[in-house]
């Protein structure tokens, strides 16, 4: 498990500021679909009972229905859990030193990217659409000086506040790095 207070590869005394995931509303359509699918066996049972009341008088047919419905429900439940897992394991962690982008792709693929805060050049928040505006969630694009030109937080809550926080942290980190460089190498001489 990832311990927020002891992230891998972190410096001593590193402090976690934010742990971000997609807004819960992104799971809503999946939840609605799950409820509809789960109601299918129940709906089927009611329909059969209504159209052919004697159908389930045969014990064998009842057993067959129970076996089929239980397996159907279990696989639907597993499908929901795996999609929740895909949502839950996509995490963006902002510390006072770096940003971690952890993306889960299915069950067996995972990408972890790391970005030092002092490399952040520009942060942009984007909220587009009626639903996103109402629920205040959107994307944050982080432009860097490194190989990954653009880090992206997708569909996170309060993107404007997060963008400002990241910018402030980056500015503070750049100042600290500048002070360290001056201490070690001295002030640059004017030409």
């Amino acid at each position: 498990m990832i311990d927020i207070n002891h992230l891998p590869g972190g410096a001593t005394g590193e402090r976690t500021i934010l742990v971000l995931r997609r807004h819960w509303i992104t799971l809503f359509s999946l939840f609605v679909m799950f409820v509809a699918v789960v109601l299918l066996p129940i709906g089927t049972y009611i329909a059969i009972r209504y159209t052919s009341p004697a159908f389930f008088d045969d014990a064998a047919r009842s057993v067959l229905f129970i076996l089929g419905a239980s397996i159907f429900f279990l696989y639907t439940w597993l499908f929901l859990y795996q999609h929740f897992l895909d949502y839950y394991l996509d995490t963006w962690i902002v510390t006072d030193d770096r940003i971690l982008n952890i993306e889960q792709h299915g069950l067996f693929a995972r990408t972890v990217s790391e970005l030092r805060l002092h490399r952040v050049q520009d942060v942009t928040a984007e909220v587009k659409g009626f639903v996103r505006t109402v629920f205040d969630y959107g994307d944050v694009h982080i432009q860097t000086a490194g190989e990954t030109q653009r880090f992206q937080f997708e569909e996170i809550p309060h993107p404007n506040a997060v963008a400002k926080m990241v910018m402030d942290l980056a500015e503070k980190e750049r100042k600290e790095h500048l002070e360290e460089a001056v201490e070690e190498f001295g002030m640059p001489k004017k030409a």
Binding site: M1, I2, Y81, L85, Y88
Partner: peptide, 10 residues
């Protein structure tokens, strides 16, 4: 699925 969640979850 459970092992993946417990292994990689926060």
């Amino acid at each position: 699925s459970v092992v993946q969640m417990l292994r990689f979850g926060v």
